[in-house]
Each structure stands twice: as structure tokens, then as C-alpha cells.
Write a protein that binds this DNA or RNA. Structure first.
Lengths: 216, 216
DNA sequence: GTTTCAATAGGTAGAAATACCTATTTTGAG
DNA sequence: CTCAAAATAGGTATTTCTACCTATTGAAAC
């Protein structure tokens, strides 16, 4: 099969790692790395003149991170295939990326052969999953905290339970927002309604409520 | 016994109540109300020209409250007798006032006869106690929260326990400071050392620690 | 189909908490 | 007496939380 090679862009701020990736992919005649970029912003600048079929996108980047870039790609280039790369194996992150329309997900410590397979599959079939990805998707991306049995307090929504649970893990609103991929303002909104519902004066009251009702 | 009458000053911002007090005391020929004042500031202005033997001082006042006034009296007029008046029967408050050198303590809903007795006793013996005062002093002014049995965590001082306990009652640092009659900065200091000792990131962690260790 | 609610998120302000300092006084142990 | 710890409290700066708003979207209920 002498299909045209898959045109690839590599986006990662770690130049050494990017170099390694390029080496791995250059082995294959059916892959062609068209360009590299340090971040999402640079990527879009080059994409305008050098079209690619697939982009390998690092999640953690300064300036314009992988998530932001993925969102923008899905708005402007719905057919572009995207494989997300990250150091951290988080169910929540995997779920979020897939929801945003990623075509594949890889950990940075994966071995080279898997990377090649991923590119090949995403190029051909449009999707590539490792076992941990399907597990993450099965779990719905997270172990959602739920109301304990015999709970008779005010009606607390699932999302609020999730926020409450994270509050009790000593996270600030900003940190919770990052974990749930929502705005800190939204977290504050959930907190506000939790305080209203439970009658707590402040965070302390909320934590005590959670403890009393077996939520933590 | 034809001793000279006890010269009295009344300091209370509630003019009606002050009037009532004056009526009660005017019954007795051995009492003489020299002047009245709305607050501690006014009191000191008049005291300079009209010396008195005893002052009945309301705790709750704007401008310069009873506590502040009592402190200043003890600095500048050590022999002046002071009877403190308040609406609230708080062991903590009673203890604090006595520690600051009050000669007597009365609740505002006390009956007139008790007020007269109090003035007489303080005038003659320099002190007047009701039963609730001695009870408050016996209890050390408060029910100090203490470390529960079988506690093996880091060494938390009594004062810190007290602060921790109040934190878990949803009080802010400022409110705790008011309750304990110390500066909010001091409360913050205690909180800081509590967080250091327990490894808590924030208030939430501190509350969880308290819960885990049976302190609340 | 409209209404209601949950989730989302932004603006503005002010209060509270946190992170660094320093410093004095008191108290108990050695 | 001396030393260490605890309690006290102030300064300054930054972050977080809280309290008010408004507004849009999607899903469920009626």
C-alpha cells in the first residue's frame, strides 16, 4: 500500500523530548514530520501555511497549553487528528481530553513502538486507545463522590458533592477548578449553593457538615 | 455611722437605663451620683475635675467601651472602685473583667436592691461578688477544651486547643479574638502554629484534624 | 412548549486567611 | 538565674474566600 505519508506536527515545549519523538517517527517511511512547535500559539501560526493530518500535542505547556489548543483545533479544524501526550495518568484528565475530541492519548513514558502504533491507528482509523484510556472512560473519568446511604439532608447535586469532596481534601477553589476543568467562578458558585443549602457560615461549616453526614 | 457619702459616676450610653440607675441609687443618703457619662472618653474628661470613689461602668458602649475604660482606669487611678455592668452573663467575660481589676460585676437585669448592696459592699470592702461570679472564677472563666484521652499527635498547647475549638465552631479569627480578649493577630499566630504542627494546608485541614482526633 | 433547575462563568468589592517578618512579656524547667 | 517555649501583637503583601450581581446553556418536568 503506497498511500501518501501521514503529515505530522509535534507540539511540545521540551525540545529534547520533541527530538526523541521525531527520531521515533522518522523510522517509518509512511510518517512525515512536517513541523514542530513549542506551544499552541506557534502551532497555529505554522499550521496556516503547512497543513498536517495529525498533531501530537503535549498537555503541559506554557503560553497555550494542550487543552486550550485542542479546544481551538476542534473549533477551526474538526478533521485534524490529535494525539494528546502527558506525564500524568489521571482518569479525570483522560476523560476530559476525550470529551474535547482528542483522537488518542499517550503517556510520555510509553515505549516507542506504542507511539508508532498510535500514530498509525489514529491516521487510519481515527482513534487509538490504550487499556488505561478505556478504563478511564468506563469509570466516567472519575470516582464520583455520592451521597452516603441514609442521607436525609438537603438535596445536594452530584457536581456539588464532587466539589464538596475536593474541598474536604484541602483544595482551594482554584485547584478544584483545575481538577474539574471548569472555571474557579463555577466552583465558587457550587460552594455558595452548598453553603446556602447546608446553612454553613463558611468553609469550616461546610467541612463539618460533610463530616457529620459521612461524606468524608 | 455618718461617713461621707460614696461619690459615684455612672457610665452607660443608654440614657434611660442610666436614669433608672440614678433613681435607684438616689434613694440612699450615703450614695451620691456626682456625674454621668455616655462613654469612657467622656468619663475621663469629667473625672479630671470631679473626683469619685466608685464608677459603675457599662461593658457595651460605642467610642470607648467598658473594657478599654477599665484598663485605662487601672493604669491611671488604681484606687478607683469599679463595678462592671453588662447584659451578657459570660464566664469568659466575667473572668476577663476580674483579671483586669474590676471590683464588682452585675447583670443589667439584676433587681435594684442587689445594685445598692453591690455599691455598698464595693464602697466598704472593695469587692462584691454574686454567686455566678464566683462560679465563673472557679471554672477559670471558661470550659477549656483539652486534648482527648489517647491523643498522641503533636503537642498542642491549651491556648491552641481553645483556638482550634473555636475555629471548629465556625468563628473567624476576629471573632475568636473578641471572645478570648486577645488580638486577632495573636489568634492568627496560634492558627499558624496549629497548621505547622498538624501539617494542615489551611483551615479545612485543621478542622479535619480536629475531627479525626476527637477534638470536636 | 414553557418553566424550572443545575451547571456554567463573568464583574466588582470587601473580608478573611495566609505567608513572610519582627518583637516583647510571661512562665516553667533546669 | 538562665534558657526555652508559649502567648502576645504589630507590619506588609498576596491569595483566597465571601457576597452581591448578571447571564447563558442544556436537561428535566409539567
Amino acid at each position: 500500500m503506497s498511500n501518501p505519508p501521514i503529515r505530522i506536527a509535534l507540539v511540545d515545549d521540551q525540545k529534547l523530548f520533541r527530538g526523541g519523538l521525531k527520531m521515533i517517527l522518522s523510522d517509518r517511511p509512511d510518517f512525515r514530520v512536517i513541523f514542530e512547535a513549542d506551544n499552541g500559539k506557534q502551532f497555529f501560526e505554522r499550521l496556516a501555511f503547512e497543513p498536517v493530518d495529525l498533531v501530537i500535542l503535549d498537555v503541559e505547556m506554557p503560553v497555550m497549553d494542550g487543552i486550550e489548543t485542542l479546544e481551538k483545533i476542534r473549533e477551526t479544524h474538526p478533521d485534524l487528528r490529535v494525539i494528546m501526550l502527558t506525564m500524568h495518568d489521571s482518569d479525570r484528565l483522560i476523560n476530559h481530553l476525550m470529551q474535547l475530541g482528542a483522537n488518542g492519548f499517550l503517556l510520555k513514558d510509553e515505549n516507542p513502538e506504542i507511539v508508532r502504533t498510535a500514530v498509525e491507528r489514529v491516521g487510519q482509523e481515527g482513534i487509538f486507545f490504550r487499556d488505561y484510556v478505556s478504563k478511564a472512560l468506563l469509570k466516567g473519568g472519575r470516582q464520583k463522590p455520592s451521597k452516603p446511604d441514609g442521607y436525609f439532608g438537603p438535596n445536594i447535586s452530584e457536581r456539588e458533592m464532587e466539589v464538596l469532596s475536593l474541598i474536604c481534601q484541602e483544595y482551594t477553589s482554584k485547584e478544584i477548578a483545575e481538577k474539574l476543568y471548569i472555571s474557579a467562578r463555577t466552583v465558587e458558585g457550587h460552594r455558595r449553593s452548598l453553603q446556602d443549602k447546608t446553612g454553613a457560615r463558611n468553609l469550616v461549616g461546610l467541612v463539618l457538615y460533610a463530616v457529620k453526614n459521612g461524606i468524608v
